[in-house]
Amino acid sequence: MGRQVTGAIADTSVFDLRLSRRGRRLNKLCEALCSPQERDAFKRDEEAFMSRFGLTEAEKALIRKRDFQGLIDAGMNIYSMLKLGSATGNGLYQMGAQMRGETYAQFLSTRKISDAR
């Protein structure tokens, strides 16, 4: 059996070990958000929370800006990002619209039945 991932796919990130390694600090921060106490701590003081996980200045800036595509490129896993989204009031579809370069309303208008959310 040869390699399973053989080439780049346009506009698509494949979360492999290189990306996972790059996003190590970011993903650890998100994993912590699976506890209500940690979510409260994040909401109380985002800066302190980010420092606790040793984020670089560039990583902190991505979180401050809620730059979701930037975070994916920096190695944040999409399922980790859902936890950050939840803690910052950004649902999956809001994050998706931003990654597509659209407003939320524009994105919803591209869906067949946008009430299914």
Binding site: D11, T12, S13, Q69, I72, L92, M99
Partner: peptide
């Protein structure tokens, strides 16, 4: 489904 990148959705 795809949940990230420009190809989201």
């Amino acid at each position: 489904h795809q949940l990230q990148g420009k190809r989201f959705g």
